[in-house]
Amino acid sequence: MTTVQDDASVVAARSVGQPGAAAPGPTTRRRRSRVGIRPPKWFVLPALVAYLVVVVVPNLQGFGYSFTTWDGLSPEFEWVGLDNFARVFDDRSSYGAMVNTVLLTLAVVVVQNVLGLLLALGLNTTVKSRYLLRLVFFLPVVLTAIVTGYLWTYLLNPRGTVNQILGALGLEGAQQDWLGDPGVSLWAVAAAIVWQGVGITMVIYLAALQNVPAELVEAAKIDGAGSFRRLMAIVLPLINGAVVINLMLTITGTLKQFDMVYAMTGGGPAGATETISTVIYKNAFTLLDFPLAIAQGVLLTLVVAVIAIAQIRLTRREI
């Protein structure tokens, strides 16, 4: 989650540079190059070494181990080629987790982006409480996923707040065993993920919306375009960069979703909310099947990497 938020903050800042934003002129750039700090290139060395040691080397080691029988502890292991990857595709729990992960990703991507855009549109107005509302909608973003997960577990308990509110409204028929019914639990987890993430999505859209030239929207209005037409024909094309960024952030963030699912359901009931990440964790640390878990981890990394690369390419083209 931290990664998503950090990425998002950078992206939000970049979104300001969309059409309509005041681009830094050549004078500013020249002044910066003259008076700004010019640190020596080797200053990057400590960070680079730390990154190599903490991220690159373990990932490469993991990739190497995925072709072996390494059990996570013993220094002795054998080379087994692609056997571990073949086991991933033979493993039924892997299939279920893949389906769940895709469904969860689809739900979160669609709902979080639609809600985030609607909130941004609503708060990109002159309504008096807009600053307070922006703060309120952004607040869940600063909570850790584990805290959010436990909070929602409490709310979604069969006798929890959500069912109590439904009961008080006379909607007893809508009361559910939110986290205990395999048909509902995945969507309940998705709702909690959206609740936490919609704030950052809103902020990115808001940053982009604030750079849409008002005169363009005004001109379209004079030409007789309605609200929906203005949104589709003027606003969305102009904030396309933010749309691409939000889509990719939510896709990659949900594909590797672990902490919220683990805190809320542990992958249950009966595997109904198991994601690729929770299956990897269980295979590694509950069943101690490290070879299978590492192969699953490598595959997940590859999928997320492909999507991340697509994100970079699309973002470069659109912004």
């Binding site: 395999p182 595997g271 509950t286």
Partner: peptide, 20 residues
């Protein structure tokens, strides 16, 4: 092996969910 216990845990949940 630990897989039996894991299958047991999930199986009982599935039994009460009506999916097993």
């Amino acid at each position: 092996n630990p897989r039996v216990q894991q299958a047991h845990f999930e199986g009982v949940q599935a039994l009460f969910a009506g999916t097993q």
